[in-house]
Nucleic acid binder design. Structure first.
Lengths: 152, 152
DNA sequence: GTCAGTGCAAACTTTTTGCACAGTA
DNA sequence: TACTGTGCAAAAAGTTTGCACTGAC
């Protein structure tokens, strides 16, 4: 098991005095390569299937570490468990989640970001991060609904 | 234990064919009266202290019911448990959470709401609800930090 | 009277932790 | 070599569930 991890990411981790163990390299690699959001259990299953020899405890500890160093985002879509996404070097984005098919759409909007800063200034609140999630029904699911209605 | 529940709320619940049991009346009353966000365990402790005779299971089941009927909002501030707030009749708002003192500030911004709708239109996404949380340091905590720095 | 709601305790899911051992810098 | 990181298993924390009993309509 040897997922790709760009050298500059390893170097940035080392700059933060994070020891690069075999386990951490693998976990970072999976989260980095993984396109969608990933949760701890899914990560564990991938590692287990590949006989990577990484325990759950290490997964949780490593993810916490990466989140605290802001290499990774931790999010919650109200499903009783946290999901993670690689953040470093990625442009900031927010999420829309389809309540029908579960798909997560990423979007980035300059106006929202600017407005958030203005609001924070009004409250004299110093922002460090934010979460924005819109729940609803995606276009594809609405098309499917429409087709179904027309067939009846 | 007899927390206040306005009659029109009871009536709206009945319109939704929700049976008004003793336990539900109490839970709704507490969530309605409670100023801050409340979690299931806190609710349970209040009920226990007042010898209300309501089990944890009923609390979870009632909260789920109220959320599904959109009387109550369920939120997650990344603390491993859900918090709830009475929603019906309250103006929509988003949250800022202070990472130092834990305080939650509510705000409502028309421009953000409008912009969210525009974004959804661009993605042909039909929104039903959204969550926006800004994390950072509140004014009071920054003042305290400042005072501390000046004393050293 | 009927059927949905409730209490209890057990189960389940996710995450955290203590401790002995392992491995990076 | 000196610590920090890891694995394991147990525990903690939050939430859900099966089943017999209760009570609202």
């Amino acid at each position: 098991m040897n997922p790709e991890v760009p050298n500059d990411i390893i170097e940035r981790l080392q700059k933060e005095h994070i020891k690069i163990t075999r386990q951490r390299r693998i976990i970072i690699g999976i989260v980095y390569e993984h396109q969608d959001h990933i949760d701890a259990e899914e990560l564990y299953k991938i590692l287990k299937k590949n006989k990577a020899g990484v325990s759950r405890a290490t997964i949780y500890r490593t993810l916490d570490l990466l989140v605290s160093k802001r290499f990774v985002n931790k999010m919650d879509f109200g499903e009783g468990r946290s999901v993670y996404e690689f953040k470093l070097g990625q442009p900031h984005h927010d999420h829309m989640k389809c309540l029908r098919c579960g798909k997560v759409i990423e979007f980035n909007d300059h106006i929202i970001e600017l407005r958030q800063n203005t609001i924070c200034q009004n409250y004299r609140f110093l922002p460090s991060s934010h979460i924005m999630q819109i729940y609803g029904i995606c276009y594809e699911c609405r098309q499917k609904d429409k087709a179904k209605r027309e067939n009846n």
